[in-house]
Computed example of a mutant assay.
Amino acid sequence: MARSSSPRQASRRAVSLTAQCRTQSGLRDRGEISDISASGCCVRVSGLYFRVGARVVIRPQGLEGLTGVVRWVDGDYAGVEFDREIYQPVVDHLVRLHGVTTVVPG
């Protein structure tokens, strides 16, 4: 596991949200966002290989594509820091629609 040691900019909120994921080289796969905040998300993909520092586009169901950088990778999971923060009311809306009741560590 190669997780960043820098502190998070915003608290994560647990969700189960389908997303299209695309690497800088153009490879695509469907993934699932398991937590999200205004500044980033954790996404699980099984058909793509993400590496730390890679540029990606994550397009959650119902939203435009969000560009960002992979900050850590752990198996099929990757932490993505968005280039631009999502408007907090949009995050709150996604949590209302797709929130789960599990506790997200960290």
Rank of each mutant, 00 (worst) to 15 (best):
Arg3Asp: 11
Thr102Met: 02
Gly65Ser: 05
Ile86Ser: 03
Ser46Met: 05
Val90Thr: 15
Leu94Asp: 08
Gln9Glu: 08
Ala54Gly: 14
Val70Pro: 04
Val15Phe: 00
Leu48Asn: 10
Gly75Asn: 13
Ala54Asp: 15
Ala2His: 13
Gly75Met: 03
Ser5Arg: 14
Gln88Phe: 03
Gly47Val: 03
Ile33Asn: 03
Ser16Gln: 12
Cys41Pro: 06
His93Cys: 03
Val43Gln: 02
Tyr87His: 07
Thr18Lys: 09
Ile86Pro: 00
Val43Leu: 05
Ser11Asn: 10
Asp74Ala: 08
Leu48Ala: 05
Leu17Cys: 06
Pro89Met: 11
Val95Met: 11
Val100Cys: 10
Val45Thr: 14
Ser34Cys: 09
Arg84Tyr: 09
Ala14Lys: 05
Thr23Ile: 05
Val73His: 00
Gly62Lys: 09
Thr18Val: 06
Leu66Asn: 02
Cys21Ile: 09
Ser39Arg: 02
Gly40Lys: 01
Gly99Val: 10
Ser37Asn: 10
Ala78Gly: 14
Gly79Trp: 00
Val80Trp: 04
Ser34Lys: 09
Trp72Pro: 06
Thr67Tyr: 03
Ala38Cys: 14
Leu94His: 01
Phe50Leu: 14
Leu66Ala: 02
Gln61Pro: 00
Val104Glu: 12
Arg96Tyr: 12
Asp83Glu: 14
Ser37Trp: 03
Arg28Ser: 10
Arg30His: 12
Gly47His: 07
Val91Leu: 10
Arg12Trp: 04
Gly75Asp: 14
Cys21Met: 07
Tyr87Leu: 01
Ser37Glu: 09
Arg8Cys: 09
Gly53Trp: 06
Gly53Tyr: 10
Leu17Thr: 06
Thr102Asp: 13
Gln88Asn: 08
Gly99Ile: 07
Cys42Trp: 00
Phe82Ala: 08
Arg13Cys: 03
Thr18Cys: 08
